[in-house]
């Protein structure tokens, strides 16, 4: 027996669904199964009006096990992480956390990481911070950077090699 989505020929991926729910249950109490589709999340979604993200649909697709459809879609990368959906859900479900899990899955499956995420990741791996000291323009159009100011030296990992080794270990581990 099987259930198939005839628009995409997608089938329920029970294993992946379980993986996401396990991952979520480590971060919060309840999983998506309790959702009754009131769509309070989408009514208030900061990304919906601009980018058409529908958190309630994400939860529904997860319940149906149609994971690939989401992992392969750009829509999961439109979330602004405002956490409003998690805050206000009457069933204590956190679409925002489901989206984080889906994005992690997309990355782990080798899909190209969108935007500057790779740059940020590279920067954190190499120096511990998402970016190095920037030269910034002031209101009078002059520019300055940290060293020009009366501020202490930038705090960053003192042994980058050791730090990087630690992070690399995680990159291959699963939550």
């Amino acid at each position: 027996m099987s259930i198939v989505d005839l628009t995409s020929m997608g089938e329920s991926q029970a294993e992946l669904r379980k993986e996401i729910n396990d991952r979520l249950s480590r971060l919060q109490e309840d999983v998506s199964d309790y959702c009754y589709q009131c769509a309070k999340c989408t009514s208030g979604c900061e990304a919906h009006k601009l980018l058409e993200l529908e958190p309630h649909k994400i939860v529904a697709l997860l319940k149906r096990g149609l994971i690939d459809e989401m992992v392969n879609s750009d829509i999961i990368w439109t979330c602004m992480s405002c956490f409003k959906c998690r805050e206000r859900c009457p069933q204590k479900i956190a679409p925002v956390e489901i989206l984080f899990a889906l994005k992690n899955m997309a990355v782990a499956s080798g899909k190209q990481i969108p935007g500057k995420y790779s740059t940020i990741l590279q920067s954190v791996l190499s120096m511990g911070l998402i970016q190095d000291i920037q030269e910034v323009t002031m209101r009078d159009t002059k520019t300055k950077k940290r060293g020009d100011l009366d501020l202490p030296a930038l705090s960053k990992p003192s042994d980058p090699a050791k730090f990087q080794a630690g992070l690399m270990k995680i990159a291959v581990e699963k939550l």
Partner: peptide
């Protein structure tokens, strides 16, 4: 000295990395 990124901007890439950082 020695602080690193908090990991939040990388939560989309790898949640475990965020927790670790």
């Amino acid at each position: 000295d020695g602080f690193s990124c908090c990991g939040e901007p990388l939560k989309s890439v790898n949640q475990l990395m965020m927790l670790y950082l």
